[in-house]
Amino acid sequence: MYKDLADEQLVELAAGDEPEAFGEIVRRWERKIFALCFGMLTREDEARDAAQETFIAAYRNAARFRGEAKVSSWLHRIAVNQCLTVKRRAKTRSEDFLDDESSESDRVFVAPLRYSPGSEAEQSERLRVVRQAVGSLPVDLRQVVVMKEFEEMTFQEISDTLELPLSTVKSRLYTALKQLKSKLDRLPVEVI
């Protein structure tokens, strides 16, 4: 029903009498917002919480959306602010933890949340597409991606290994991620 509508129309409907329209917004952007949160927080459980909070905040503020910016930018800003809030909270907790060791159990035994945005088949298909997209990158770009993501090397280590300037390494990774984004955006939302 809402699949053919633009993001701005969906937000407008959600701000009006059709809150269900926001469900389509969540379906389209949940994974991307989650990825953004993961990029900022680097922990999956915190990123899931932050993504959840982002969409709740967006829904509550849908009436304030004026359409001056794209919905994506609007959501990104909410997500970044939400992540910064999470980080500030974590920092405060960490300082409290140093003052009061009794709160140790609250941090250590936090069970990771099992976030399942899609079925197992969808995930398998998604990973296949990602593999294909990474494999289609030029060798010099793919090399940096693999060294960074799979070997978990620092930029300086990659620079030393490849005997390339640090700026070149960052430039290649930046270009690689941009090309990956372009390749993955061509795929259906259900996959990505």
Binding site: L36, M40, S72, R126, A133, L177
Partner: peptide, 23 residues
């Protein structure tokens, strides 16, 4: 806003690779 969108793009293309590695 520009940095937010740019950072979002990088994060969105990085996470699938991370997921591929993790899974």
């Amino acid at each position: 806003g520009t940095c937010i969108d740019d950072f979002a793009e990088l994060s969105q293309s990085r996470y699938p690779v991370y997921e591929w590695k993790r899974t």
